[in-house]
Design a protein around this nucleic acid. Structure first.
Lengths: 121, 121
DNA sequence: TCTATTACCTTGTAGCTCTAGGTATATGGC
DNA sequence: GCCATATACCTAGAGCTACAAGGTAATAGA
């Protein structure tokens, strides 16, 4: 019996520090009023002034993830023969939004500090 | 001979829209003066006011990538018996910095517009 | 009839970041 | 001399996000 070299543990990693912006945007939009997926796709482009454009392939998986972890609740409605899935924030989602917003402000401040440092060199 | 279903092409993807912030920070720091890897690790923490902390496992691969694509040039120096690899910006690196800075400002503006929209709802 | 639009969805990949290690030298305390 | 700490470099492999590229189905308009 050869002593097995213990496989590197590789516990779960923290999410990349810059990630979660799509999530932040969706939570923020849904904090104002309930919306459905396809609507959110257009809305993100709109409110960010075309600066950010997230495809359906990004939006839908994020929505499903947020629903699964209890940040969103979904409600199906049929409008004009088409099914829409409306999402709205839960209490947990509201907390998550606040936390992501803080994270965003923190890293934003950090990056800008680094960029600004050039001016007063 | 079965007609092979053509494998999904999966051309190269655009980099995730929020990525490249570590790269931006490193280029920005190196635009001011040449530095070596270990120094950059400390420096990033410092200039971002502890908001962002990139480990060596992040810094070194990024530096190598930037050198490989011609954005940085490296120069080895021995100081006090230890080898340091000093990096400095090339012309290409300068252009890359400017582009990443623009990208950053664009998405920053976009996100903040979305966040701000809540106030004047 | 054919195309565009709305509205949902998933699969598989690319690429980035992180963790967790590794090597080697110098320094200061005991 | 010995050991822990700091300096300084590095990599492999996993985790995860965001992406492109598809697919289904219904409606609306040309």
């Amino acid at each position: 019996m050869v002593k097995q070299k213990p496989l590197r543990r590789m516990g779960q990693t923290n999410p990349p520090f810059m990630s979660g912006v799509p999530e932040l945007l969706l939570l923020q939009l849904l904090a104002q009023r309930e919306m459905y997926g396809y609507e959110l796709v257009k809305s993100v482009k709109l409110v960010t002034g075309e600066a950010i454009s997230l495809g359906e392939g990004v939006i839908y998986p994020v929505l499903h993830g947020l629903e699964r972890n209890g940040s969103l609740k979904a409600k199906r409605k049929v409008v004009g023969g088409r099914t829409r899935v409306y999402y709205s924030l839960t209490a947990k989602g509201k907390r998550r939004l606040e936390r992501l917003e803080q994270d965003w402000n923190r890293i934003q401040t950090g990056v800008n500090a680094a960029l600004g440092a050039a001016s007063h060199a």
